[in-house]
């Protein structure tokens, strides 16, 4: 069975979701739960760190699409960081860089939330 886990950290009013392992149709509900919980707690500034993510399919990509509208309507955003080339290529193939801000590391994403 595919291994996938997440952990959530708080940095001020910003929430960081760390992804680990294989994100597919079987494991996507784990990440959906993270987003649902953050939204239920009115936490709309979210950074997702892909550093330990080994694999993503469209079922995983779909999770980001499912929540982004609600989050942006509440003046928040989902910013993505630390993607491997392999994972970035899949995002790129589907045109995600037009819809999501993707940064090299967490610090850059956090700066964007707190800075401008």
């Amino acid at each position: 069975m595919a291994e996938f886990s997440t952990s959530v950290q708080e940095r001020g009013d910003i929430s960081i979701i760390n992804l680990k392992g294989f994100l597919d149709a079987h494991t996507a509900p784990t990440l959906e739960n993270n987003f649902t919980q953050l939204i239920n707690s009115s936490k709309y500034k979210i950074v997702v760190n892909f550093e330990d993510l080994a694999y993503i399919s469209s079922a995983g990509l779909g999770v980001f699409m499912a929540y982004i509208e609600n989050i942006r309507d509440n003046k928040g955003d989902i910013k993505l960081t630390n993607m491997s080339d392999k994972v970035f290529n899949i995002f790129d193939l589907l045109g995600f860089p037009l819809l999501y801000e993707i940064y090299k590391n967490e610090e850059e994403a956090i700066k964007k939330f707190s800075g401008s």
């Binding site: 399919s57 469209s58 079922a59 990509l61 779909g62 699409m65 499912a66 982004i68 509208e69 899949i90 193939l93 589907l94 045109g95 995600f96 037009l98 819809l99």
Partner: peptide, 24 residues
């Protein structure tokens, strides 16, 4: 073929897999 902006607005993701298969 997916219009990503439209998918994003309508929360529809089913066609992405099909598009990926054809691309890959």
């Amino acid at each position: 073929l997916p219009d990503l902006q439209k998918y994003y607005r309508e929360h529809r993701v089913g066609g992405l897999g099909m598009y990926l298969m054809k691309s890959l």
